[in-house]
Amino acid sequence: MRTSNHLIGVLNFLTFLLSIPILGGGIWLSSRANNTDCLKFLQWPLIIIGVSIMVVSLAGFAGACYRNTFLMRLYLVVMFLVIAVLIGFIIFAYVVTDKGPGRRVLNRGYMDYYLQDYSGWLEERVASHSYWGKIASCVRDSKVCAKMGRVDSNGIPEPADVFYLRKLTSVQSGCCKPPTDCGYIYQNETVWNLGSGLMSANPDCSKWSNDQGFLCYRCDSCKAGVLASLKKSWRKVSVINIVVMIILVIVYIIAYAAYRNNKRMDNDEPYGEARMTKSHPSHFQL
Rank of each mutant, 00 (worst) to 15 (best):
N5E: 03
I8T: 07
F16R: 01
W28C: 13
A33R: 07
N34G: 15
N35C: 12
L39Y: 11
L39F: 07
L39S: 08
Q43D: 12
P45C: 04
I48P: 04
V51R: 02
I53K: 02
I53R: 02
M54E: 14
S57D: 08
L58W: 14
A59C: 13
A64N: 01
A64R: 01
F70T: 05
L71W: 03
M79A: 15
I83C: 07
I87T: 14
I90W: 06
I90T: 08
I91S: 10
K99T: 07
P101H: 11
P101A: 07
R108H: 12
R108A: 10
Y113N: 04
Y114V: 06
L115I: 10
E123H: 05
R125C: 10
V126R: 02
Y131N: 08
S137P: 04
R140F: 01
D141T: 15
K143V: 00
A146L: 11
A146P: 06
M148Q: 03
G149N: 09
D152I: 02
P157T: 07
P159F: 06
F163G: 07
Y164V: 05
L165D: 15
K167P: 09
T169G: 10
S170G: 12
V171T: 12
Q172P: 09
G174A: 09
I185A: 07
Y186G: 00
L194M: 13
S196K: 12
G197I: 08
N202Y: 05
C205V: 05
K207E: 02
W208P: 00
N210Y: 08
Q212C: 08
L215Y: 00
C216V: 00
R218D: 03
G225V: 11
K232F: 14
K232W: 15
R235C: 01
K236W: 02
K236A: 04
V239K: 03
N241W: 13
I247K: 03
V249T: 06
A255E: 09
A258S: 08
A258G: 06
Y259P: 14
K263F: 13
R264I: 05
P270C: 09
R275F: 08
M276I: 09
S279V: 02
H280Q: 12
H280C: 10
F284R: 12
L286M: 10
